[in-house]
Measured scan of single mutants.
Amino acid sequence: GKELVLALYDYQEKSPREVTMKKGDILTLLNSTNKDWWKVEVKATANDKTYERQGFVPAAYVKKL
């Protein structure tokens, strides 16, 4: 199945390749080969529509579930 990670801290994206997350968010882990930056998929809701974004977050800010 898919691997999930838990956001340990809030993170505000600093570039278009990154994604914003809030502490407590559960994210889908896409790639953890880089030890510093993990690629995740974030589900977000805006205007009653759910959309998914993929991007990088600092590996130290998340932990595998």
Rank of each mutant, 00 (worst) to 15 (best):
K49A: 11
T33P: 04
V40D: 00
K63S: 10
N47D: 12
T33V: 09
K43G: 09
G55C: 05
D36L: 13
G24T: 01
W38M: 01
D36S: 11
L6S: 04
T28F: 10
A46D: 13
R17E: 11
K39N: 06
W37Y: 06
A60F: 08
K64L: 14
Q12R: 11
W38E: 00
V62D: 01
A60L: 09
E41D: 05
E18A: 05
V62A: 02
T28W: 14
Y61R: 05
G1E: 12
K23T: 06
L8F: 03
P16A: 12
T45G: 10
L8I: 09
N31Q: 09
V57M: 02
E3I: 15
Y9M: 10
K49V: 14
A7V: 09
L30M: 06
K2A: 11
K64P: 09
E3R: 13
V5Q: 00
S15L: 07
V62L: 15
F56D: 03
V19W: 04
G55W: 04
E52W: 15
K63E: 12
P58N: 03
K22D: 03
L6C: 10
T50G: 10
E18P: 03
Y51D: 08
A59F: 02
G1I: 12
A44N: 12
W38I: 04
K39A: 07
S15M: 07
L65M: 08
D36Q: 13
N47E: 11
K23Q: 09
L4P: 04
L6M: 14
L6F: 08
K14V: 07
D25T: 06
V57Y: 00
F56C: 14
M21Y: 01
L4Y: 15
V42Y: 10
A60M: 10
L29H: 01
E18R: 05
D36F: 15
E13Q: 13
Y61P: 00
S32M: 08
G1F: 13
V40A: 01
K2T: 11
Y51M: 09
V62N: 00
Q54G: 05
A60S: 13
D36I: 14
A44E: 14
A60E: 10
L30S: 02
K63H: 09
I26K: 04
K22L: 07
M21Q: 01
T33D: 15
Y11N: 00
M21S: 00
G55T: 02
L29Y: 03
V57I: 08
L8R: 05
V57Q: 00
G24M: 03
Y51L: 10
E41G: 14
P58W: 05
L4Q: 10
S32F: 06
E52Y: 15
N31K: 06
D36M: 13
G24V: 01
V62W: 03
G24F: 04
K63T: 13
K39I: 13
I26Y: 06
A46S: 12
L8C: 09
K22H: 08
L30W: 04
A44F: 15
A7E: 00
N31P: 03
E18M: 05
N34G: 09
V19G: 01
L29I: 04
V62K: 02
T20Y: 04
D48H: 10
V19M: 07
L6P: 01
R53W: 06
W37S: 01
K22V: 08
V57F: 00
R53G: 05
Q12E: 12
N31S: 13
A59W: 02
Q54C: 11
N47T: 08
L27R: 00
D10E: 05
D36W: 15
Q54H: 09
K63L: 12
A44Q: 12
G55H: 01
P58I: 05
L27P: 01
N34E: 09
L6W: 07
E52D: 14
A60P: 07
W38F: 06
N34D: 14
K14G: 07
L4T: 07
A44H: 14
L8Q: 04
E13T: 07
T50D: 10
L4C: 13
Y61D: 02
E3F: 13
M21A: 02
